[in-house]
């Protein structure tokens, strides 16, 4: 059973004290004008006269008292305030430490749940048809852990298609995307979600390769073999390519990007992701 990181409760508690609004139930936030923000899902959608088919509970009683006419306020669907997790289960993810991958996903799911934010998770594979899982309330990440444990890393990556498929099926407007992003077809500038969080799980090639020599590199997704000379110059050139990929992910609009390696400190990432989520 994958458990959240030990630091998660403390992070959730600290973040709750710091941002009371985030701790409030979504229904309360939606009805309190003080929490309404321009451009967010808490915005008022419309005010119209009451009709017989409307729920009487939606009548604005204050307006009724002032105008003696019944009006109904319509708000946007609060369901869009949740976060969709999209987990890369392609063959290349086997290179990243599975336990670290699982802890990252479960911890983030638990944190969001603890802060009252709905989470639904999907694992995408070669078929690009995410399997959806909705987490329970208030920090119950067991469903997410079960989903991750049942995941096998295999097949090829097509992140773009998977994101599009998820966007069609999910009402949430925020996406937590977990992948190594070693997909040449993926363009982070073409995001279907209004707010995207990219978690790049990196297994450095230099740590696997010898200092120099001839390498036979098998692609875990395609099974193709590539023979390549490897030395300090090649390592430097490869790192430059990785850096270019990082810049590409970081510079995408409406996108947050974090690079994690198996041994990376994850608490800072949790905190930064929550900060961005709340901003």
């Amino acid at each position: 059973m994958i458990l959240p990181d030990a630091a998660c409760p403390a992070i959730a508690a600290a973040f709750s004290r710091r941002a009371v609004r985030a701790f409030l139930p979504a229904s309360v936030r939606a009805r309190e004008p003080m929490f309404r923000r321009s451009g967010s899902s808490f915005d008022l959608k419309a005010i119209r006269e009451y009709q017989g088919s409307d729920d009487p509970r939606s009548i604005d009683w204050r307006l009724l008292a002032r105008t003696d006419r019944a009006y109904v306020k319509e708000f946007r669907d609060e369901a869009g305030e949740g976060v969709a997790f999209l987990l890369d289960s392609s063959g290349s993810m086997e290179l990243f430490d599975r336990a670290a991958y699982g802890s990252l996903v479960v911890s983030l799911g638990w944190l969001l749940g603890a802060l009252g934010i709905a989470v639904e998770a999907a694992v995408f594979d070669e078929a690009c048809s995410p399997r959806m899982t909705r987490l329970g309330r208030r920090g119950d990440a067991r469903a997410l852990a079960s989903l991750f444990e049942a995941t096998e890393f295999r097949g090829r990556t097509d992140i773009g298609r998977a994101v599009n498929a998820l966007r069609r099926r999910s009402a949430f407007r925020r996406l937590f995307l977990f992948s190594d992003f070693l997909d040449p077809r993926f363009d982070p500038r073409r995001q279907r979600f209004p707010d995207t969080f990219l978690f790049q799980l990196r297994a450095p090639f230099a740590a696997l390769a010898p200092l120099e020599g001839e390498l036979e590199i098998e692609d875990p997704e395609t099974g193709e073999l590539l023979r390549a000379p490897w030395d300090a110059a090649e390592a430097a050139r490869y790192e430059a390519q990785e850096e270019a990929l990082r810049r590409k992910l970081s510079s995408a609009p409406r996108t947050g990007h974090w690079t994690l390696e198996a041994e990376s400190e994850r608490e800072a990432v949790y905190w930064a992701a929550l900060e961005r989520l709340h901003a």
């Binding site: 070693l182 297994a203 090639f205 390769a209 020599g213 390498l215 036979e216 098998e218 692609d219």
Partner: peptide, 20 residues
């Protein structure tokens, strides 16, 4: 001797193919 020391790895080709 150099060829015998050739090592086989599993790693995505994405960043190699760009230059190859």
């Amino acid at each position: 001797t150099g060829l015998l020391r050739r090592q086989r790895l599993r790693y995505p080709h994405a960043l190699f193919l760009g230059r190859e």
